[in-house]
Design a protein around this nucleic acid. Sequence first.
DNA 1: GAATTAATGGAACAAGAGTCCCGTTTGGCG
DNA 2: CGCCAAACGGGACTCTTGTTCCATTAATTC
Lengths: 240, 240
Amino acid sequence: MEQESRLAGTVRPGGRTAKVRAAVLQATQDELVERGFHGLNMEQVAARAGIGKTTIYRRWGTPAGLVTELMTELAAQSSPPPDTGSIQGDLEANALNVLGAINDPHLGATFQAVIAAATCDEGAARALRAFYGRRIAEWAKVADLAVARGDLPAGTDGEELIKAVSAPLYYRLVVTREPVDHETAVRSVTRALIAARAGAFVTGDPDPAGPTGVDAEGEVSTGPASNGATATRTTRRSRP
Amino acid sequence: MEQESRLAGTVRPGGRTAKVRAAVLQATQDELVERGFHGLNMEQVAARAGIGKTTIYRRWGTPAGLVTELMTELAAQSSPPPDTGSIQGDLEANALNVLGAINDPHLGATFQAVIAAATCDEGAARALRAFYGRRIAEWAKVADLAVARGDLPAGTDGEELIKAVSAPLYYRLVVTREPVDHETAVRSVTRALIAARAGAFVTGDPDPAGPTGVDAEGEVSTGPASNGATATRTTRRSRP
DNA sequence: GAATTAATGGAACAAGAGTCCCGTTTGGCG
DNA sequence: CGCCAAACGGGACTCTTGTTCCATTAATTC
């Protein structure tokens, strides 16, 4: 079950351990590309890495553990946001960065694996949150710069904006499972930017554009039943 | 939660078979809520449903198979979009519908399970695409109505708009794994609507607002390989 | 470069998941 | 009502997955 799971060369970072780790992570990634997360097999990974399976179990415990460390590893390699000088350019850089990651065979497989792992393993979920928390916070800076330049309304929530740019891409990757292409990425930027310029990302202000006012307070309750805002509703209960 | 779901396609839709099916799907859902997808155990489901495990294996084969059928079942129960009379109200109804599904213990667990299953099982992936394809197409009609009323620019792509409203919610559910609340839903509507009114969802027109022109092709590079539009999905079946 | 000790590897072992066989039950139909 | 085919159930069986034990290897320390 739960092993020591001492992460990356904690105690003895010496050459052998590091080599084992590298070989295992590499094998894990290759296996993910070929068979996906659910096909990830500890014994198979061990064989591929040329490592005894005892070692794999001892250090990583489960497939989710392997994937979690792989994600941690990738997190360390993520590129910092460039400052292209325009918020448009920066957001596009972000979108294309995500696009590239999603469509890269290795990275795409890894992300999907971690997402899958996170639905069942708390460690993977933490790694995922940590990764995106950091990444989003980092990219949010470009929005702050834009605000400082006067390119965006004061008070714009940078993190929300970055999320808004990325969301449609991941949504397609994971939920609707459509191919995600360059145009999707660019459009996502355009749409988010329009909303941002209109002040829709200003903190604590859900109702920026007068006529588009949100009257909210529909309150949801009843399971999946729809329950909106204005006018008539055909409230229908689906089966809980 | 006694579902009398009878949907078959089976050769013998008679009483016993249907009861077995209902019991198994119910047990599956309960197990998903308690243990998640990766904890889904065929033997456990069989025991809980009071059904021989041979039957489970024979009819559904794998955990992914169980989850896939569960999703198909839920798809049949999804509620149709209301026509609230305003695009704002309709989109909010959609967002709250999604919100309710995500936050419902049973539905939320099921969605996450199917999403996880879809990353490795082609059947689950198909079911997922089918479900959202239908759902989105159905809700897209409210956008068409809005266009007819003059509430939205002519040529607005309804499906894209619906996706834009849902994406941030699923993104939070699956990727950043933050709680998804009412405000998130409402803001998602606001933002999408602003972009829609500005024409950002008009088909084949990625550059509606002049000054917000997209110069694209900046190409990002760094870190994760960037890659124009190569949609490589690596899904693979588990076992027969 | 010898001692010390963490880390690894291999093989046997235990647990469980998935399959198979075959007898029993049930629904459809004349 | 009685027959037949389809579906179910139980239990034995097999193969995969995960664990344990202990000898071996190699990094660190002095």
